[in-house]
Amino acid sequence: MTPRYSAPRDLAGVTAALADGDGVVVGGGTMVVPDMTHGRTSAAVVVDLSRAGLAGVTAGEDGAVVGAMTTYTDLITSDVPLLSTVASGITGGPQIRNRGTAGGSACYANPASDVPACLVALGARMRLASAGGAREVPAAEFFLGGFRTARRPDEVLEAFVVPPLGGAALGYLKFKLAEGSWPIVTAATFAPTGGPLRIVVGGAAATPVAVDVDRPSVGSDDPAWREHVREAVHTALDAAEPWTDVLAPAAYRRRIAPVIAARSAGRALEEDR
C-alpha cells in the first residue's frame, strides 16, 4: 500500500502528522529509508523531518540543544562535547555523515551503535514532542531495549540537551570487527574533576550500561585497577539484558567490554592530565 507523504514545515506540523500514531518518521533516512525499501518498515504516513527546521545546535542555559536533524557532519564542526569526536568516527563515509543524525540513531536504538552510550554518559535529556505537548526524558531512561525507546509512536524527538560539562574530561572508544561493521562494544567515559569515573558501555547489553569506578591510584594501565574495572563492568552486565547480533554473541561482548571500558577510561584520564 502506498503511504501518504508529509514533509511538515514546522514542529507542529510534524506532531499533527504523527498524531494518529501510524506514521514513520524519516530523519536523515539512512536506516529507515532502506528499511522501507526492503519492507521491514511500513506505515500509513511517512513524516519527513527534512523541512521541519529541526537542525542545528543552540546554546541554551542548561546546555547545548542539539536539534534532532543535526547531522554527524554538523556535529563534527560543532562544540558539542564528545559527540563532535564520535561523529567523525561514524562509518559509512561522508555520505552517511552528511545525512545521518545522532537523533535518528538514538530513536533507532540499535544497541550496536555509537550514540546511545554517549548520550547516557553525557547525561543528555531527550526532548519529545507530540500533539499533546512536550516532555523530557533522561537518556538513561530513554533506551528500553534493543531497538526500543521511551518514544511513543505519536511523538517526535525534537532535540536532545547536553548539559554543561562542568570541567569533566571525556573519553570514547569503540571496537568494531572491521571498518564496515557495526560497533561491537563502545565505551564513553565521563570523568568529573577529582571524582569517580562514570563509564557507560554500549553494545554489550541491550541498553547502555553505566558503571561507576574509582580513579586509578597509579595509572590506567595498573593491573589492579583494570581488574577493578573488569569486575565492575561484569557485575553491571550481569544485571543487564544480554545482546547478541549476527556479528558477535553476547559472551564475546561481555568478554571485551571491560577491556574497552578500561581503555576508554584511560583516554579520559589522559585528557584530564
Binding site: L177, A178, E179, G180, S181, W182, D245, V246, L247
Partner: peptide
C-alpha cells in the same frame, strides 16, 4: 547486508 557480511573496506 554489507553491515553483517563484512567485505574489506579501504581502511582494512
Amino acid at each position: 547486508r554489507f553491515k553483517t557480511y563484512l567485505l574489506p573496506r579501504a581502511g582494512d
